[in-house]
Simulated assay, not measured.
Amino acid sequence: MDLMSRARAGDGEAFRALTEPHRRELQVHCYRMLGSFQDAEDALQDTMLAAWRGLDRFDGRATLRTWLYRIATNRCLDALRSARRRPARQWDVPGTEPPEPTGLGEIHWLEPYPDALLDDAFGVPLGPEARYEQTESISLAFVTALQVLPPRQLAVLILRDVLGFRAHEVAQMLDTTVESVKSALKRARAGMRRRLPVPREQPPARDSAAEEEIVAKFVSAYESADIDALVALFTDDVFMSMPPIPLEYRGRDSVARFCAFLFASGRRSELAPTRANGQPALEVYRPTPAGRRGAGLFVLTLAGGRISALTRFDETVLGFGLPQSLPGAPAPASATGAEDSTQEVARCGR
């Protein structure tokens, strides 16, 4: 008896053998649609449960992979229509008031996706209609831009331009016509052109000496509260956001004021390197009486030899393989660094 026959007869191991090769790419698909690691995991579990219960309805006219994508896409559309989103959170550090932001973010539910989980997903060949590189299509800028699209346009763009499914395949997945798919794709592409920033310079290659140098400079400047060294790493139009807090800061002076405010408040952190969304990332550790505890994640977007975007996630996401806490006493913060940062707040506020 083959795997499909065994799975239809109720063999759970056979079902896992059939679906496991597609699990990680389906999770990434759900993440692109929902923008949240946790929501994507929930949608993946719903997909697998629906596939298990509905295996008798798989008629073999499409591949099992395509059938699973159909289920996953529609589960994500259901989640988007239900509007169950992680709520925005207000600034809640007692005794501090951040500088006036340049804007308020809409996508407060955004979460990072660990690079450690991407290998299996990126090993799958894309279809002939794909227009985006795999690494580009998981970047924070790309995922953020996707979240603004209407749900049906979002699904069509991912299925067509990211995964490379043909128009008739997408029409079957969404129970619609090829003409509707083409129309939705045209509008989705226009929306992405408006929202997706075009980098003036390409980032350094992954794990290259140039990338490592920028990250090392950022770590050194941030851990020592050296505002001048930190600002020197930013592009003129650098952008900083911090989901789920909706505050956004755009431009070197604005981001400098916020970083100087953090340093002046006496908050100190240690940073440990990792990767998220195909980009360099840093786990944030804060001092506690028992040592240092994970307190979030920075994801850096690089342009040439500088940082063009800085996303600070306040909550640690599972999957990065880093410890939740570190033993031992934290490195002492320099009094001079805090004093200089206080002066910088005053200077930036003029």
Rank of each mutant, 00 (worst) to 15 (best):
A225K: 07
A225F: 10
A225W: 12
A225M: 06
D226N: 14
D226P: 07
D226T: 12
I227E: 03
D228N: 11
D228Y: 01
D228S: 11
D228K: 09
A229H: 09
A229R: 14
V231M: 03
V231Q: 09
A232G: 10
A232R: 12
L233V: 11
L233Q: 07
F234Y: 15
F234P: 02
F234N: 02
T235F: 07
T235N: 06
D236H: 07
D236W: 00
D236P: 06
D236Y: 00
D236L: 01
D237Y: 02
V238P: 02
V238Q: 05
F239N: 00
F239P: 00
M240D: 01
M240L: 15
P243K: 04
P243C: 02
P243I: 03
P244A: 07
P244E: 04
P244H: 01
P244R: 02
P244G: 05
I245T: 14
I245N: 15
I245M: 14
I245V: 14
P246N: 12
P246A: 12
L247V: 05
L247D: 04
L247N: 11
L247F: 13
E248Y: 04
E248R: 14
Y249H: 01
R250M: 00
G251Q: 03
G251P: 04
G251D: 04
R252M: 03
R252N: 03
R252Q: 12
R252I: 13
R252A: 14
R252P: 06
D253W: 11
D253A: 15
D253T: 15
D253V: 12
S254V: 06
S254L: 05
S254E: 14
V255F: 10
A256S: 14
A256C: 14
A256R: 15
R257M: 11
R257A: 15
R257Q: 13
R257T: 12
C259S: 11
A260L: 09
A260F: 13
F261Q: 01
F261T: 03
L262I: 14
L262S: 04
L262M: 09
F263Y: 11
F263G: 00
F263N: 05
F263K: 00
A264H: 08
A264R: 03
A264P: 06
A264M: 01
A264T: 06
A264Q: 01
S265Q: 05
S265D: 05
S265T: 15
S265K: 05
G266Q: 05
G266M: 08
G266T: 04
G266L: 01
R267Q: 11
R267Y: 04
R267S: 10
S269W: 10
S269I: 15
E270I: 10
E270A: 13
E270T: 14
L271Y: 11
L271M: 11
L271Q: 08
L271W: 10
A272H: 12
A272T: 09
P273N: 04
P273K: 13
P273G: 01
P273C: 09
P273Q: 10
P273Y: 05
T274G: 08
T274K: 03
R275Y: 09
R275E: 09
A276L: 02
A276S: 14
N277P: 08
N277H: 12
N277S: 13
G278Q: 04
G278F: 08
G278V: 06
